[in-house]
Design a protein around this nucleic acid. Structure first.
Lengths: 258, 258
DNA sequence: CGTATAATTGATAGAAATCAAGTATCGTGG
DNA sequence: CCACGATACTTGATTTCTATCAATTATACG
């Protein structure tokens, strides 16, 4: 891993990074500032690197590139839990357990900034609204995991793949308003298989089917959805739609603390 | 569903209920009081009732009995996501999405108390430490879900069942210190199957194997672990161990708010 | 005591893993 | 610029696991 001198987050990247939190409510400038205040040192990793292994409790805010959290199972096989895009906070689930169950890996070259657990505590003490937003995003992740688990247990591999493609497109559209039916998707077939719990060989057959039925194509690290309606039909999932919570603490911290 | 007049939470039940939050740090009396302040009306449900369906955003604190959150898949089959025991907060993931993905159901007759999303906001504003604990528990749930997902994708049905039994025993031990190798476990074989993604028929075969190999037995809604070492070996998971976070906000709310 | 629900067992079918072998693609160094 | 090696992709044959179907027995409950 290489450490780069911390640079200023420029506007375009900054927008990407807050896109996730801003999905629930509009952030006002002071909150963006609080968020930036979390920013620690910047790190760069190369594709394949381990960003945070199972025995660490560090947190990272993903700035650029794709990452994933993965669970290594006893027999050596690997399950990818989530693909992460810029704006995602990496490592939160590990805060609760002595030995985090997941390893965070870089799927492409990535840039991240470190966040210490201590700063999370600060946020809860002094930026309740920001803390509540992090809480909400964790609940969203939980909901997404629940959907994944349900599909894994009850649906065919083709259904799981279709749902994965849809959710990926929706997530990508959050950080890039221009995302339409076609977008950058750097995972190998093997990695896609690890996301839905099939082997690389079988993933190849599934992609062939989607291609031949004119539903979706992956070519040159680019995913193109050709027949969205059919994809939705196969996936059997509804478009992901966030709540608009009315119960968040007010934007200003309630008191300027001593 | 039947609504009962709110009763005082007696000591024994109270201990059960805070056991989950108290797993990370000792709660001091003022915090327990804050927690109790969340308590809304008490409700009772019968086995099989829907406590909260997919289109609601209510929260409940489970006081007594077993519940589960379930995702209904397109084709009508059902995946049970988690079995919940007293002390669990039900419905949190639904806060983040317009249409919650899960339905909360009663696996036995249960008692719950209602919590409104509004009160969650209050906790973030005025009880940062309590909020941080709810946050931590959500991260623990996420970690547990990640483990479940990994097992679902990569492990055999027998491995998944073994891991389920172990995690169930650990969770049960949290609320009942006396839990040893044998404890109350009211799920039917079909429901156990819905937890690990197999049919009731196959679950029957799996339980037969565990029984004949002298590893674990279910009889009369009682689960008995006969050979814990072998169960751990098959499950391939480590004992669940929580972190001891040092970064939580201080026990007293930082300021007595207007 | 009868009825509904749950558990059990055996036979067959289907989905995906595994095994094996070959082809394409890409980055890199000569 | 091309050759090489590594990684990724593709395809077919076989095996394994789990679902489905069908029928029977046990258990719980009113």
């Amino acid at each position: 891993m290489a450490i780069a001198p911390g640079e200023e987050i420029n506007d375009e990247r900054g927008r990407k990074v807050i896109s996730r939190l801003a999905g629930f409510v509009d952030l006002d400038p002071s909150e963006v500032q609080q968020l930036v205040a979390l920013a620690g040192r910047e790190y760069r990793f190369e594709r394949g690197d381990i960003i945070r292994s199972e025995n660490e409790h560090d947190l990272y805010l993903l700035i650029d590139g794709w990452a994933a959290s993965a669970v290594i199972v006893e027999d050596g096989s690997r399950q990818l839990i989530t693909a992460n895009l810029p704006g995602d906070i990496l490592g939160l689930p590990g805060l609760a357990v002595r030995d985090p169950v997941d390893t965070v890996i870089a799927l492409t070259d990535v840039e991240v900034i470190g966040i210490s657990p201590r700063q999370i505590g600060e946020a809860f003490a002094h930026s309740p609204r920001l803390a509540a937003l992090m809480f909400l995003i964790s609940q969203e992740e939980r909901s997404l995991l629940m959907e994944r688990l349900a599909l894994m247990g009850q649906a065919s591999a083709l259904t799981r793949l279709s749902a994965l493609i849809l959710r990926m497109q929706e997530r990508h559209a959050q950080i890039d308003r221009n995302t339409d039916a076609s977008f950058f998707m750097p995972l190998t077939q093997r990695e896609l298989g690890e996301l839905i719990g099939v082997t690389g060989v079988h993933m190849n057959a599934l992609l062939k089917e989607l291609r031949e039925r004119g539903i979706a194509v992956i070519k040159a690290r680019k995913l193109t959805i050709l027949d969205r309606d059919e994809l939705i039909r196969i996936a059997g999932v509804s478009p992901w739609c966030r709540s608009s919570p009315s119960w968040l603490p007010c934007p200003e911290p309630p008191v300027e603390v001593r």
